[in-house]
């Protein structure tokens, strides 16, 4: 224990800086990626004016957001209103703390890592609720209520599926989970039909539920702009809005990373022979694959209605996740 603490505290500041850079660069990169990906899917060019192929567009937007007036309307609950973006941002920031970027990355080696990640990601909901409530705006309130209902519901299937992974890996440490999937892509939980086929189904459930967890289409009800104007961040502007924005993209990457760690071997290479490519590249490569998938889905599907959203969760995903847990356990016990 002391050994772990020593290494943890030794590594923590470095990790924090690295993660701060990752989160910020990720937002710039993801926004640009989303613009370009959506543009290509929609027969457009996307940003083309600033820099070659519009590469500076997101930087300019970031500067614009920083310089914008921070409007706090009358009748707003100021302390909550000001605090909310930081909570949301902090929570999505903290998930990266336990993500193992590479083999032996010690900051991440928390023995209840995955539990921490799930717990801290639930914290985002508190921030969103604070934002929605304090805004003194009915649209924000609707957005916040939807967000809470959605996040709380979809945490159930996610937790159940994660539990199944933990059961098979035999550890709650994200590093251990990665290590347990060593040896090539056929050993990854999400693809290993021969090890435990139920985890493959679990992978699918996790991916669908994670879309809801980060408010992405088709589950983007809390900020459905065509219904709720801007959802919980309707009243925010300038830097505070930028924080919500930043955390949204950080969350997209975070669930991608969690999915990678849980089901696609984390930093493990595709094949042991490809081990010369550094672990972080594998992790980020796979995680951005998920981000791309999220964008692809967003550009393809319309949005669900609130009752349909609940239907998908409680009547489809939760029973299926239960099945994964029980049958996956039985398989592990009898065959695995």
């Amino acid at each position: 224990m002391t050994e772990l603490m020593q290494t943890f505290w030794f590594w923590a500041p470095f990790s924090a800086v690295v993660i701060a850079i990752v989160v910020t660069v990720n937002a710039l990169l993801s926004v640009y990626m989303e613009r370009k990906v959506s543009a290509w899917m929609q027969d457009r060019l996307g940003p083309m004016e600033n820099g070659p192929h519009g590469i500076l567009q997101t930087v300019i937007d970031a500067v614009k957001l920083l310089l914008k007036e921070d409007i706090i309307a009358r009748g707003i609950d100021r302390p909550l209103f000001k605090l909310a973006p930081y909570i949301v941002f902090g929570a999505s920031f903290a998930i990266f703390a336990v993500t193992p970027f590479a083999d032996g990355h010690p900051a991440a080696d928390l023995n209840v890592g995955i539990f921490f990640a799930l717990a801290i990601s639930a914290f985002v909901v508190a921030g969103i609720m604070m934002a929605g409530w304090s805004s003194n705006n009915k649209w924000s309130l609707y957005g916040a209520m939807r967000s809470v209902a959605q996040a709380v519901s979809y945490e159930v299937p996610i937790s159940l599926v994660v539990l199944a992974v933990v059961m098979v890996s035999g550890s709650m440490s994200m590093q251990e989970i990665c290590v347990s999937q060593a040896g090539g892509f056929w050993n990854w939980h999400g693809l290993s039909l021969h090890h435990n086929p139920f985890l493959v189904l679990g992978f699918l459930i996790y991916f669908i539920a994670s879309l809801a967890e980060v408010n992405r289409t088709p589950f983007d009800l809390p900020e459905a702009e065509s219904e709720l104007v801007g959802g919980y961040h309707t009243e925010y502007s300038g830097m505070r809005f930028a924080l919500f924005f930043l955390s949204e993209y950080a969350n997209m990457l975070a669930v991608g990373m969690l999915a990678t760690v849980l089901f696609l071997g984390g930093w493990q290479p595709l094949h042991p022979a490809l081990g010369f490519i550094p672990g972080p590249l594998w992790l980020f490569g796979k995680a951005y694959g998920f981000v791309l998938l999220q964008m692809w889905i967003r550009m393809t599907l319309p949005r669900l209605r609130v009752d349909q959203l609940m239907h998908v969760c409680w009547k489809v995903l939760v029973p299926a996740a239960m099945g994964v847990l029980v049958l996956g356990g039985l398989w592990e016990l009898l065959i695995g």
Partner: peptide, 16 residues
């Protein structure tokens, strides 16, 4: 009609 329901891409195809 699609855009109101969150379908972004058909909107651009229609406008094209």
């Amino acid at each position: 009609c699609g855009l109101d329901l969150g379908a972004l891409t058909p909107y651009f195809f229609c406008f094209r």
